[in-house]
Design a protein around this nucleic acid. Structure first.
Lengths: 142, 142
DNA sequence: CTGCATGCAAAGTCTTTGCACTCGA
DNA sequence: TCGAGTGCAAAGACTTTGCATGCAG
């Protein structure tokens, strides 16, 4: 049995074609790649998988609830998804080409924790998005 | 002439009733208060100001373009607005009561700049949202 | 078999736009 | 006066939901 099937079972989700296919897309893309529901829907169509957009949303939402994927709200209204990684990380997005880089910085987190503590908050989640222009490799393609 | 009128003129916007009223709402609320378009719309209605929701959005968008207000996308889909403050700052949101606290930490920004530099990005914007539960004063009202 | 999962279409939410009318300068 | 600004309703973008059918276990 493939890895993804176990992940699905673990999450209490029946192993169905749409779920497996969507998981595979996210998995194959690897870290640092982010998809909108629409992106995934189109990829499925390209692979001749007859999956509805509504199902994509449903599956992604279930995956999120199960902790398999993380949902981000970058600028521009729609949500993007990525496989949840072991370590929580932040994002820097190129406003010109749309490229997303991830980074994780202990010092940054530590300082955030400290600030939250000073303000009397118990942090449950955090999002840091940096927006900018990437120097090299930015082909302005998006 | 009131302060807000000058601000509007400076932004190249004709001084009209909706714009003045909306500016006043944001101004009176002070720092740390955040409004959705809907919030402002309701407040206007309470003050018996006959302003359409579409106008609220238009005005807020114009204000944003003029740099008078900042738009944020917290969790939950809709945008919130606040008067732009002298210094860029971050937000910590209570997930239980919806309270928003602001903070600004030079060390945090400096580290972010450094990271961006290492990744070859020129930062144009940044958003850090911390989510958590505020210890005291949280009446779970929202 | 049995019920969870899916596809389709319809409904929802938040936001923007088109158009004729109104108001500020 | 006269064009920018406004209100209303309709349209749009993204996401969720209802319902009959289909498939996994």
């Amino acid at each position: 049995m493939a890895l993804e099937n176990q992940e699905l079972r673990k999450a209490g989700l029946k192993v169905t074609l749409p779920r497996v296919k969507i998981y595979q897309i996210l998995e194959k893309a690897g870290e640092g790649d982010h998809f909108s529901a629409e992106d995934i829907y189109k990829l499925l169509l390209e692979h001749n998988e007859d999956v509805g957009l509504a199902t994509v949303y449903r599956v992604l939402t279930q995956f999120e609830a199960a902790g398999l994927v993380s949902r981000h709200h970058f600028e521009g209204g729609h949500s993007v998804f990525e496989l949840t990684q072991d370590e929580q990380h932040d994002h820097i997005v190129c406003v010109k080409c749309g490229k997303v880089r991830e980074f994780s910085d202990p010092a940054l987190k530590k300082r955030q924790d400290q600030i939250a503590k000073e303000l009397g908050f118990k942090i449950t989640d955090r999002t840091l998005y940096l927006y900018g222009e990437c120097a090299d490799g930015c082909k302005n393609t998006k």
